[in-house]
Amino acid sequence: MSVLIVAEIAKGAFRKSSLEAISYGSRIASKLEMNAIVLAIGTAADAQLALAGNYGAAKVIKVDHPNFQHPDSGAYTALIADVVASTQSSVVLFTHDNLGKAVAPRLSARLRAGLVSGATALPDLSEGFVVQKNVYSGKAMAAIAITTPVKIISLMPNSVSPVLSQGTAEVEAFSGSADGYKPQTSSRYEHTERDGEISLPEAELVVSAGRGLKGPENWGMIEELAGVLGAATACSRPVSDIGWRPHHEHVGQTGLAIRPNLYIAIGISGAIQHLAGVNGSKVIVVINKDPEAPFFKAADYGIVGDAFEIVPKLTAAIKKLKSAN
């Protein structure tokens, strides 16, 4: 019996969120006295794949085939179901990201295996197999029991820190033929990000601004602050609705939900719909001239004042910190 972790590769190495899943899965495996096996789909050198051992995995099965160039949910599900069978896996782990959301539910239905998506903590094995996740857009948590023989979890990125160990993982090629897993969909990638721009869904630091900025021409100071921090930029819904900022920057209930280490909200009042998209952030800083802004109730640090005075000072202070270190 094993725990199978479906890991994603980007630019020749495991994604950070996949390393979190490998560590999480390995810790479950050791509690259940099972082996942690990683299924790595994509192109990476064996030396990179072996690094899964540092996160507790015993073995990596690599699959590098054109059928998996893009995440076709049908082809991925068929492959993973076969690997679950050949490795006799009783727990399967995904990351709760685009791939996990496309494939984990399909696999759940195919194997009649209970799925908890967006897990935020290690399962409680003291009484069955109980996994915690956030519900009601972060306003509550639920403990969910999976009672089926095979159990599937997708792990919320940036919620369980990986634990490093000294092990090594053996890397082997997928023993079957990958030719048969034909995708039903086709895809073409378009690069839209400017050089050096930080991708918002995966950003650890985010600088976000709202209507308090008065107009799109005032975003220069937000981009400058994000630049010195190495942060992604985001915005509130009204700002994307009126076209001051692109839609993909909108965080909140109906936009993107993010969980960065630091979220700096500038000139955003903090409507409950906005909070639903950012309440998973580890640290929230609010800068707003209205001391009654509801966002202050959800913040760790706050400054009541004029963003146009405070933001340039903040940028300067961070520059100073960076040059001192």
Binding site: M141, A298, G302, I303, V304, I310, I318
Partner: peptide, 28 residues
């Protein structure tokens, strides 16, 4: 395939630490 055992509410957030707008360096 799964069963919700129990709901819970997050621990209340400790109150915000306010920083003097004249002292932004303290925030950093």
């Amino acid at each position: 395939l799964v069963q919700i055992k129990k709901f819970s509410l997050p621990a209340p957030k400790s109150s915000v630490k306010l920083i003097d707008p004249e002292n932004v360096e303290q925030l950093v």
